[in-house]
């Protein structure tokens, strides 16, 4: 029973990672860049939620969309200001810029909210769910269900709408997509918009399990989600889902059965082993250079 409970925990943690990993993977697929600031968007989402609920007294069904909206706007703004001028630049310049944006968001939050963590009322409150004598956390179940719904929705969006197909086209070949009349700028903006909105949801769910937010809240989940995206094969949407869930389960089980402190090391170790066996991740496409 204990094992089952840990598994549910892992699934719910993993689905949060998966939601964040989606943002990394979508942006990577289209711009071939590692958006290190993505983790900090979660933090912004969590702060927004906190202000909306405790200061403005919005009900959750209003506070969550507000938080998604703020993050979506933030994501698009970051892309416009910091990344768009660097489309032709070296990947390293873009990476450093993304790290700069990450530091910027963190220090801005530090200036506005101070360094102490802020308690946030959860937007999702579901009590324990009893199945026979077995009780599992309701929040975990909601998290898992919500993630599945969002994933299915996103997959449908990418495969069945014009904008989604434009995203696929741009990720395949930016130049060719442009020649076929795809508005590349708009498509990239949509990618950042949807990725950031998903990060906001991840922020809401993260808060529902941890209850606190600080300026560096987004940092570690951000890195873990990044690892999840790479584990699943960066650029692949199902890969992000798979990687996130796997990572969550590995982390929960290591914490429960091996060592709380070493859980992170185990997670990173698994990543290295997987990449050594499959250099482009579990579901990543193998790229061969044409000679």
């Amino acid at each position: 029973m204990e094992f089952l409970a840990q598994l549910v925990n892992g699934l719910s943690l993993g689905s949060i990672y998966a939601l964040i990993a989606l943002g990394y993977t979508m942006v990577y697929g289209i711009c071939k860049m590692l958006n290190f600031a993505h983790g900090d968007v979660i933090m912004v989402g969590a702060y927004t939620l906190s202000i909306a609920m405790s200061t403005l007294h919005f009900p959750p069904y209003l506070a969550i969309p507000v938080s998604m909206l703020v993050c979506a706007v933030l994501g698009v703004t970051i892309e416009r200001i910091a990344y768009k001028p660097l489309r032709q630049a070296s990947p390293l310049a873009v990476l450093i810029t993304a790290i700069g944006v990450s530091y910027f968001l963190q220090s801005l939050a530090l200036l506005i909210f101070g360094s102490t963590q802020r308690k946030v009322e959860s937007a999702i409150n579901v009590g324990l769910i009893h199945i026979g004598d077995f009780a599992i956390s309701g929040n975990a179940v909601v998290t898992l269900l919500l993630t599945i719904v969002l994933m299915v929705g996103l997959t449908w969006f990418i495969n069945h709408t014009m904008t989604g197909k434009a995203m696929l086209a741009v990720s395949e070949d930016k130049g060719a997509a442009q020649l076929m009349g795809v508005n590349v700028n708009k498509t990239i903006a949509v990618t950042f918009l949807s990725g950031s909105a998903l990060a906001a949801v991840a922020g809401v769910l993260y808060i529902a399990s941890y209850g606190y937010v600080g300026p560096y809240t987004g940092s570690m989940p951000g890195i873990k989600a990044f690892v999840a995206a790479v584990l699943g094969g960066i650029g692949s949407v199902p890969g992000a889902m798979l990687g996130g869930i796997l990572l969550g389960i590995i982390e929960s089980l290591s914490k429960a059965y091996i060592s709380t402190q070493l859980a992170d090391a185990i997670v990173f170790g698994v990543l290295i082993v997987v990449l050594l066996v499959k250099p482009t991740g579990l579901l990543g496409k193998k790229v061969t250079e044409k000679v």
Binding site: Y28, L34, P91, L95, I223, F226, V227, V230, I234, Q261, L262, D264, A265, F268, G269, L271, I272, L275, L276, P279, T280, G281
Partner: peptide, 26 residues
Amino acid sequence: PALRLRGDYLAIVTLAFGEIIRSIFN
């Protein structure tokens, strides 16, 4: 790993390596 991996994948492996070392010392 650098012999097998390229670019961003190697970057994440080096990152993971740094974090593993840190948690071991911890």
